[in-house]
Design a protein around this nucleic acid. Structure first.
Length: 349
DNA sequence: AAGGCGGGGTC
DNA sequence: GACCCAGCCTT
């Protein structure tokens, strides 16, 4: 039988820690706030989320307010936070809650988990924290903590290792699962951190197998990810009557539905520049601006050029002109937001 | 089971 | 540079 005496020790430690976070107001918790915070926190540090969360709540205070908003407004509020399918899914889920669930976050595990953007972790977190149900919420923190605590040597990013942790969590999960899940997050962020765990500060170190065996830096085992592909990007600054020509990206794939300056991707900077000149059939001045942007899975080396196409091209509905005043209110794609900020001064000249 | 999908802090 | 974060979805 598993020794679970550490559970209460951990929860007492977390309670006296009293971490103050915008989404951790006094109980009862607002399920809407719990849901939004959990989505924002997917693969994202708490410090990055804080300002977005507060702005979001002023802009979209309820499920209904969010459901009424346009997708562009929602995407704009998410700009800079990354993983933009989260914004699209959150919007779709809000409309579903508004039309089918009385404008509330549902309180049944299977129902919540069926909503877009809500997987097993987020469903468990919402149900336990907002509704007091006894559900587990296994995230990166929990995988790391349990791998160390119980000396699990399987790769936690693979199904087998993950299953071992999930089984273990089920056996240790207390009735007050919400407080327990939050206590694990506290421990994972403050003490049982990835690289160099602070075991001397850990309230449950005496129960930890990895610590006992001096393997706390060896665990957890996790596969490395492959490195990014490098691409070269040439962007066109096409200015008419104080407005820049911009392009709306496709509805699927990277930076979906966000706006960018017209651009070409290639494997060399020369090729990108040549293709851009051919596309707009004009001379390019520049590069007038350079930037290197690292994504999780690729790298863009960007060059921007001033272009003045002689004739008005037939452009289609994915193209439109925006003044800087206007493009501050539309969702801009990653590094194009930086270019847009820089390009404002061209309008003044 | 594997890979796509952002951005930023930290070493 | 590399690592990794309160993961989910598609293929």
């Amino acid at each position: 039988m598993t020794d679970t005496t550490w559970v209460k020790v951990l929860m007492d430690w977390s309670a006296q820690l009293e971490r103050e976070l915008p989404w951790r107001e006094k109980s009862p918790r607002d399920p809407y706030r719990v849901w939004i915070s959990e989505i924002m926190l997917q693969q994202t540090r708490t410090e990055a989320v804080k300002p977005y969360f507060n702005t979001w709540m002023e802009k979209f205070p309820t499920v209904h307010a969010l459901a009424e908003a346009s997708e562009a407004e929602v995407l704009h509020a998410w700009q800079g936070l990354g993983y933009y399918s989260r914004a699209r899914n959150i919007h779709a889920a809000a409309r579903e809650m508004d039309s089918h669930y009385g404008g509330r976050v549902p309180d049944e595990l299977k129902v919540v988990e069926s909503l877009p953007g809500i997987g097993s972790y987020t469903a468990g977190a919402i149900l336990s924290i907002a509704y007091g149900k006894r559900t587990s919420a296994v995230d990166g923190n929990v995988l790391r903590i349990y791998a160390r605590l119980y000396g699990i040597e399987e790769d936690i990013l693979k199904a087998k290792g993950r299953r071992q942790v999930m089984n273990c969590v089920e056996q240790t999960l207390p009735e007050d699962a919400g407080s327990f899940n939050e206590a694990l997050m506290d421990l994972g962020q403050e003490v049982c951190i990835p690289r160099f765990p602070r075991c001397s500060e850990c309230p449950i170190a005496s129960w930890c197998r990895a610590h006992r065996e001096g393997k706390e830096k060896e665990l957890p085992v996790r596969t490395k990810k492959k490195r990014q592909e490098t691409l070269y990007l040439a962007a066109a600054l096409i200015l008419r009557h104080g407005a820049f020509l911009m392009h709306k990206r496709p509805e699927k794939g990277m930076l979906a539905s966000m706006w960018e300056f017209p651009m070409v991707l290639a494997h060399t900077p020369e090729e990108a520049e040549r293709e851009l000149g051919r596309r707009w059939n004009c001379r390019l001045e520049g590069p007038v601006w350079k930037h290197r942007h690292v994504f999780s899975h690729r790298i863009w080396n960007m060059n921007a050029y001033v272009a003045a196409p002689a004739v008005q091209e037939p452009m289609g509905k994915d193209y439109a002109f925006f003044t800087p005043e206007e493009y501050r209110n539309i969702p801009l794609a990653g590094p194009h937001a930086r270019l847009a900020a820089w390009a404002e001064k061209l309008v003044l000249e």
